[in-house]
Amino acid sequence: MYFDKEKNNRERLKFIEMWAEYVRTHSDKEWSKQQNILINSLIKNGLRKS
């Protein structure tokens, strides 16, 4: 199966750039609420595995 790694990397960096811009231009409370959905769920699931 053909997979364009370079394109994938470019898209990942583009998303990182967009998210960094969001963090720069929004309050800490706003971006952290969104980030915490991911972090808290990872912690919860990680702990379940242990």
């Binding site: 309050s27 409370k29 952290s32 808290n40 919860k44």
Partner: peptide
């Protein structure tokens, strides 16, 4: 100074 809502990792 970060006014973020702390997550479980931050608290740990």
């Amino acid at each position: 100074k970060l006014d973020k809502e702390l997550n479980e990792l931050d608290k740990f």
